[in-house]
Amino acid sequence: MSAEGRDEDAAAAALEADPAADEVERESREHPQSSATGRQYASGREGFFGGMRAVVPFLFGTIPFGLVTGIATKAAGLSAAAAVAMTTMVFAGTAQIASLPLLVSGAPGFVVVLTAFIINLRFVIYSATAAPYFATLPMRWKMVLGYFMTDTGFALFLRRVAGQPEMAFREYYFLGSGMTVATVWLITAAVGVLAGAKVPPEWQLEFAATLGILALLAPFVRSKPDFAAAATGGAVALLASGLPMKLGLVAGAIAGICAGVAAERVFAPRAREAA
């Protein structure tokens, strides 16, 4: 297992794409002892509680996000059972919020699923980056850790193991932070679903899903290539919105990814290779 060279590159690339990394960085600057560096854990229990404690400051982001997701899901017209099932099983707020306008407009199921897949492609980067640290664990551990992979949990974990690549009980640390985020997320989303049911339709809360998507887009647009990806994705999807089955959306997403890669070559040729 190595955390040098290529892996570090991957970690840097992943962190760059990660909105939660921002928060982690701010947090670790303000409380240098809390996450980036730390002591060795003597037991799984200690590691688990260490992860729990480290993630607490980030719950202030999880709580409103859970509420918004719950309210928007209910406002889109899903039954409470379907809304809670979606929140629990998909366990990815960005994809869930993004699926709502598609469901309301009657997009075919495969387009909704494909969209969730594309939005959650960032987890592939996280998963590939974290994999070496969990390589020796038994399969059941890997499955559990995979489910609890979140933006915040990943960014926090990566900060921690970057300073301590051979950290003992790191899987417990990851699980502690992941389960805490998941618990708070599920509770707040359920509260949101209940609250959403009480909101009168005149409030037009369906629009909150669209606003949520725009708000979630913001942290992903930081560099010129990011901007190229978003602008191209949006423009192509808009111009292709006449295509049947909402395929304009898929075309936009693919065109946007290509534009981002192309813009990276234009704006930062070789810079990445040199780093």
Partner: peptide, 24 residues
């Protein structure tokens, strides 16, 4: 493992897909 080139491309997926949903 995932080739670095692919990782870099995947980085743009959320921005592209979210914009493709919200802007239209």
């Amino acid at each position: 493992s995932l080739p670095p080139k692919v990782q870099r491309a995947l980085k743009y997926a959320p921005a592209a897909a979210l914009a493709a949903i919200a802007l239209p």
